[in-house]
């Protein structure tokens, strides 16, 4: 059951093939690639985002494509600089959240008994305690900055993943090959890392994507409240300053509209990628698609009752 490097490579190639075949996944992957490119090289292509380059609250023009902020900075430069920080925090938190969730979930599901009861209680409690108010209370006590933000987002975001991974672990434990490994006297660590976790690769991947969407949204929300470090440039602080500078009441839509659009595009792209993966990995949906294509090819409509297409004389 252990995966060799060659299967990992073909696995990756297969994923790439699958992404290209599914329309949703392709759209998601393209959107994501564009933003990663902007985050990677964008900051070198635009000017200093902190520089005061013109009259405050100028609408978009040829010299400032997205206008200027209430302080007179270039909105585009700030947007691009914010993309890098926000995506870094988003993906970092997304990964950490899944790591923590997987660790707790596997431990609870594999060890069972009291450990399971205790850990399950813990994540169930964290699931029902509303995240944003808790995040605000914790963040308010800590020095503001990306680390605080990341910490708070992990604390409020890990529970759901732990719950799902625990359920999966319980299901996997009952499988024959795990039972065989236990009988063969393999160590728990080896069983978990070699037998159980590899079966959850696609689940964990989906969780990373989902958690990143959560992390970006929650991060922007907290920073909008003023709980981030308002002197660093991120998507959230951009919106914070837009609100602070009364962008709405002065009609300066360009100071908040592009940022929100970027947040939504990244979230949309990630979600599309995820639902594309779901369709790729869900055999039922795949078969149903082949069935529809087969019927359409013969000029028949899919019907509720089993369709009759006379192929055989």
């Amino acid at each position: 059951m252990s995966s060799t490097p060659s299967t990992a490579v073909t696995g990756f190639a297969a994923w790439w093939q699958a992404i290209r075949r599914d329309r949703k996944a392709t759209i998601g992957a393209i959107i994501l690639a564009v933003f990663l490119l902007v985050a990677g090289v964008g900051p070198w292509l635009v000017g200093d985002p902190d520089a005061l380059v013109g009259i405050p609250l100028q609408p978009p023009s040829t010299s400032h494509w997205l206008g200027t902020t209430g302080q007179g900075q270039d909105v585009l430069a700030q947007l691009v600089a914010g993309t890098r920080v926000s995506l870094a925090i988003g993906f970092g938190v997304g990964l950490t959240v899944v790591l923590v969730g997987a660790l707790v979930g596997v431990t609870a599901g594999y060890l069972g008994g009291r450990v399971d009861a205790l850990l399950s209680l813990l994540f169930n409690v964290f699931l029902v305690i509303p995240g944003l108010p808790l995040a605000i209370v914790i963040a308010a006590y800590l020095p503001s900055g990306p680390l605080t933000l990341g910490f708070v987002l992990v604390v409020t975001g890990w529970a759901w993943n732990a719950r799902v991974v625990r359920a999966q672990t319980l299901a996997q434990r009952k499988r024959d090959f795990v039972a065989a490994a236990v009988v063969a006297g393999e160590s728990s660590f080896r069983i978990v890392t070699r037998e159980i976790l590899p079966t959850m690769t696609s689940l964990l991947l989906a969780q990373v994507i989902g958690s990143t969407v959560y992390a970006i949204g929650a991060q922007v929300g907290l920073e909008f409240l003023g709980l981030g470090d308002v002197s660093t440039i991120t998507w959230g602080t951009n919106l914070y300053w837009a609100q602070n500078d009364s962008a709405l009441l002065t009609g300066a839509w360009w100071t908040f509209a592009p940022t929100g659009l970027c947040v939504a595009l990244v979230g949309f792209g990630l979600t599309m990628l995820n639902s594309g993966f779901d369709e790729i990995t869900n055999p039922r949906l795949q078969l149903e698609r082949a069935w529809r294509a087969h019927l359409r090819l013969r000029g028949e409509e899919p019907t509720r009752s089993t369709p009759v297409v006379m192929d055989v004389g």
Binding site: T306, V309, D311, V312
Partner: peptide, 13 residues
């Protein structure tokens, strides 16, 4: 009963 769910089709007879 014609209740076979997708991806089944009746192809003859």
């Amino acid at each position: 009963l014609r209740i076979l769910p997708p991806p089944a089709i009746i192809s003859g007879g």
